[in-house]
Design a protein around this nucleic acid. Structure first.
Lengths: 415, 415
DNA sequence: ACTATTTTTTTCGAGCCTCGAATTAAAGGG
DNA sequence: CCCTTTAATTCGAGGCTCGAAAAAAATAGT
């Protein structure tokens, strides 16, 4: 709530509806009494809010899944999010891959589809066409009891403008400024979010492990490029204008190695897979890097680095230094925070860890000098998928099902 | 307003009170009709809120300063913040200098006092003693119609922990972890804020030029050390745990010049005044830098750099590169934003600008490639002062005078 | 079988809030 | 001296949350 915003009485109900939906989403199956205990709201208020939500079809009483039986007193009746109130779609767009999935409002997968596309040769229209085809298929084949499609969330490898739901630039395709949001929004008549995949990863991590990834943490994706999803003060941090924190394009060496973004000396130009292969293949660091990297070759190089101390090991060490130097600068700006390393780079963490920690060490500086926490997740795709799903569902929870105005409730719109 | 917070009906009033106080603080003299126009609240609500604020003594009708006369209809009656409802104190702590000032609730200076202290030799008790002495003097000598002291805001050169109102580390004194907040809070029975001086500068800039320094901007203080105050999404950005964004300690050159913080290669180790003098005095970049710098000598070096192309000019160019490299990394993380350069470094901007811009250029990258805006403010002290004042006053506006509960209103507490 | 007990959930009134409409207040114009 | 115009307040309607009381729905005991 900002200082220049005006508060109205129904804002109170809106906020408390959000609160109820959030606890239901987190716990799955909860009685009204449980909700009272979890939220701190009074029983009367919880009663009022839940009856409203039930009448709008957003949540439902779950008769079968009764919580506790064989106890004295009136039994609690379990409430749960109504899976059939809405469907959301997620689209992951990566190099040569489109992955679309449908989820119900409870977060259960309804259907999914993979599609191989030569993204590097694809024009924006080709990409959009592929995505629409997949979504059409999925929507047509879904069971009749599924709810109406109400949100699409895209996670893309590239720089995005969240406000305009546009992909500004991406390494996976030559076209720029692709307005996925506008197109999909018109075609399916729903709101669309277009976010950087790293932000989706961060979202997923925070959802699955809120203990560890709490208010402040960073998820760094080390794969085809280097990106970062950042959570600060419990909120995803999007740049001032565009999208993600472009960790990979922080400056490591002034006038250094050529980066795929066209500039010189970026962290990515030392630590990404293409940077490693450029180095181990004997090319100059100013040479244009490969657009695509064969994972098999990358693994081979990594294994060679593990077995003998040669050019390969040196390349990974350089990578560790680049990431470490970026982290040290990052930690100077925002204090040390837990880090998740995701993607192929996480699979070679053993090769970069020592150099990385060497450079970072001493960062903690004046504050509580805690140990730097780094966790690795070699496979990024499940995280991206889950992050997209949570983005969509939380959007519905907080933006669509939150307004108390029953006259414009989505279920009525869908009728 | 967070997702796990519960909303109550009186929160609405609290928020709208804040809104009214904020518009009054910004515009100074406003009729109820003006407030209606500015805020968007209904006349009835504005009437209710203003009568409450008047009865609590927080604002007052200003009979003399009538806004518009000679017009048909009932004349508007001007409202204004009541200067006598509270007094706030600011303390600026810098190298060899303590500056304490008293302001009334309207932001008018009541009294001020400067004190020269050899901070480098001072123990924490000495510093606290000096500050208390000054505040005692000021409070005793203030006019009888002044309001009760209700907040103290300190701006210090060093790393602070805002939550604990503690100065963790500072270049101006050997002692660490000085709990100014706790001591002053007990002694004067008020809340105390301890912030990094750069954050105060940012606060002041946003207040004086909200057009230019809007949602996102950075204020970089180039003087005895290098610090940064950052505004993101319209809110001051404090690190995850400690205090300011330590721009000066981002990594510029791995294993590079020795920084005063004990590490190597920080931006500060190339761009601060002591770094320039270390270089021009023929010392090695790994030598321990001077603790104190004579401004006269610094100016002399700058002038030499302007007149001939020698070691001095090279030193400033190095400084420009260091700052530029930091900015480029910063802009990678949070997108390009307007920058204010403050302090002695701003006076030599002509010597560093070219190299700085060279390194930064290309940062804008994919987004709207706007021109990097840099403005210079050679004297940091007025900004720090104003920032401290605004911090205190806004704290009163939003935290103390906002709760609608009239039973515990501060003016009653003071009686 | 029937009542007492226990626990959950709903209902109802009090006390907040904002807002629109009507009313009162306080000037200038003719 | 009345009319017009503008400012500010008052009042009722419709929200909201909450505490207390009532209703609902089970088990336990006789």
């Amino acid at each position: 709530m900002f200082l220049d915003e005006i508060a109205r009485p129904d804002d109170v109900r809106r906020q408390n509806r959000r609160l109820v939906l959030a606890t239901l989403r987190r716990h799955g199956l909860l009685s009204r009494t449980d909700i009272v205990a979890q939220t701190g709201l009074s029983p009367s208020t919880v009663s009022a809010i839940t009856t409203a939500l039930i009448s709008e079809g957003i949540i439902a009483e779950s008769r079968d899944g009764d919580i506790i039986a064989n106890r004295r007193g009136r039994p609690q009746v379990a409430l749960t999010l109504n899976p059939a109130v809405a469907t959301v779609a997620t689209v992951e767009l990566a190099l040569n891959l489109v992955h679309a999935v449908l989820f119900d409002y409870k977060g259960q997968m309804i259907a999914e589809e993979f599609h191989r596309v030569s993204t590097l040769d694809a024009k924006s229209d080709d990409l959009i066409h592929s995505i629409c085809l997949m979504l059409d298929n999925l929507l047509e084949s879904r069971p009749s009891n599924a709810g109406p499609l109400m949100h699409i969330s895209m996670g893309v490898q590239g720089v995005t403008d969240a406000a305009r739901a546009t992909m500004l630039w991406s390494p996976i395709t030559p076209d720029i400024n692709i307005a996925f949001g506008e197109v999909l929004s018109k075609r399916y008549d729903v709101t669309v979010a277009v976010a950087n995949d790293c932000n989706m990863i961060a979202e997923a991590l925070r959802w699955t492990d809120p203990e560890h990834y709490a208010e402040d943490f960073a998820a760094i994706l080390l794969s085809h490029g280097i990106g970062m999803g950042l959570y600060l003060k419990g909120k995803p941090f999007l740049g001032a204008h565009s999208s993600a924190a472009e960790f990979g394009h922080m400056l490591h060496v002034p006038n250094g190695a050529l980066c795929r973004c066209g500039r010189h000396g970026c962290i990515e130009a030392y630590a990404s897979d293409y940077a490693i292969l450029r180095r181990t293949s004997g090319q100059d660091e100013k040479d244009q890097p490969a657009q695509d990297v064969d994972p098999a070759i990358y693994d081979e190089v990594a294994n060679r680095a593990r077995t003998r101390d040669g050019e390969e090991r040196a390349a990974f060490r350089k990578a560790g230094q680049a990431i470490g130097s970026g982290l040290r600068s990052l930690f100077s700006l925002i204090d040390p925070i837990p880090v998740a390393l995701v993607g192929s780079g996480a699979a070679v963490f053993d090769l970069i860890e020592d150099d990385l920690r060497d450079i970072v060490s001493g960062t903690s500086g004046w504050g509580a000098a805690q140990e730097l926490s780094i966790r690795c997740y070699p496979d990024e795709h499940p995280l991206i998928l889950q992050g997209c799903m949570m983005t969509s569902l939380l959007h519905l929870d907080t933006q669509v099902f939150a307004p108390g105005d029953a006259g414009d409730t989505p279920i009525k719109r869908a009728i």
